[in-house]
């Protein structure tokens, strides 16, 4: 019987912890949504700074949701979830940054009306 209560207590304790985690995550996410929103809508910053601030709060919110909603930090012992997650982030960065880099250079090299007489690096046969 006493054992019964102990198990139930532990369950409720774990439940309270989980509830706190969701509430913290929710409140932080709302704040991290409203901050960039008002920065953009009220024009609180100049363009370049605003982009950094907005992207920054998105990245912080990603972290908040991964920790407080997905509870990634406390799953499986050898942390396979985490390893897969980090690997994915790596690929995502290579994919997105790589595409932008390549396409930016492509645009840069093709902005002139005729590439045949304006690009120093391009020598037509």
């Amino acid at each position: 019987m006493i054992n019964d209560f102990k198990v139930i207590d532990e369950q409720y304790e774990a439940g309270r912890k989980a509830l706190r985690s969701y509430v913290i995550g929710f409140v932080l996410s709302i704040i991290l949504t409203l901050i960039p929103y008002f920065i953009v809508v009220k024009h609180l910053m100049v363009n370049q700074t605003a982009v950094f601030a907005v992207v920054g709060s998105a990245l912080v919110q990603l972290l908040v949701q991964v920790v407080f909603f997905l509870h990634l930090h406390k799953k499986s012992k050898p942390h396979w979830n985490l390893i897969v997650f980090i690997f994915t982030i790596l690929i995502v960065i290579i994919l997105v940054a790589g595409s932008l880099w390549v396409m930016y250079n492509l645009n840069y090299n093709m902005t002139e009306v005729s590439p045949f007489n304006s690009n120093e690096g391009y020598i037509p046969e």
């Binding site: 949504t33 960039p36 809508v41 907005v54 992207v55 709060s57 998105a58 919110q61 990603l62």
Partner: peptide, 13 residues
């Protein structure tokens, strides 16, 4: 969140 940020917010800057 990323759609909100990269499409809508950065689009409006």
């Amino acid at each position: 969140i990323f759609i909100f940020t990269f499409v809508y917010l950065i689009g409006a800057i």
